[in-house]
Design a protein around this nucleic acid. Structure first.
Length: 113
DNA sequence: CTACTGACCGCGA
DNA sequence: GTCGCGGCCAGTA
């Protein structure tokens, strides 16, 4: 396992329950700005048995990355809703559940978009 | 070496 | 909402 990979996994593991983050945000937090694709690739190769909240990672627009209706898609929606995250039409409102949603509210005073 | 693909991203039209 | 384009690599043929 390369160090960069370990940092990506650590960044994902650090997403609080009930919150979500985009691939790009994870890459940035792992010290790898601009490398969202690497994050996506790594999520497809999570070591078996590794406990990781992979379902808290979404695309930059809040959409679930996997094909609608697929196994992973349904599983991801289920797990997210199970911890209180709103999933509608395969999308999560990042303005409310995104990692930096709090900061946005503090800066702009815009509760929930 | 080139070409294509992929759980991505931002911009512009 | 859609599409295209360039950027980002890493794996595979």
């Amino acid at each position: 396992m390369q160090e960069a990979h370990a940092r990506v996994y650590a960044a994902i593991a650090a997403i609080p329950r009930g919150r979500v983050a985009s691939y790009g945000a994870i890459a940035a937090r792992a010290g790898l700005p601009g490398r969202a694709r690497l994050v996506g690739r790594l999520l497809g190769e999570v070591p078996d048995g590794m406990e990781l909240p992979w379902y808290r990672v979404l695309r930059s627009d809040g959409h679930i990355a996997m094909p609608p209706g697929s196994r992973g898609f349904r599983e991801q929606s289920r797990l997210l809703r199970a911890e209180g995250v709103e999933v509608k039409n395969g999308r999560v409102p990042l303005s409310r559940f995104g990692l930096d949603a709090d900061i946005d509210r503090l800066l702009w005073g815009m509760p929930g978009g």
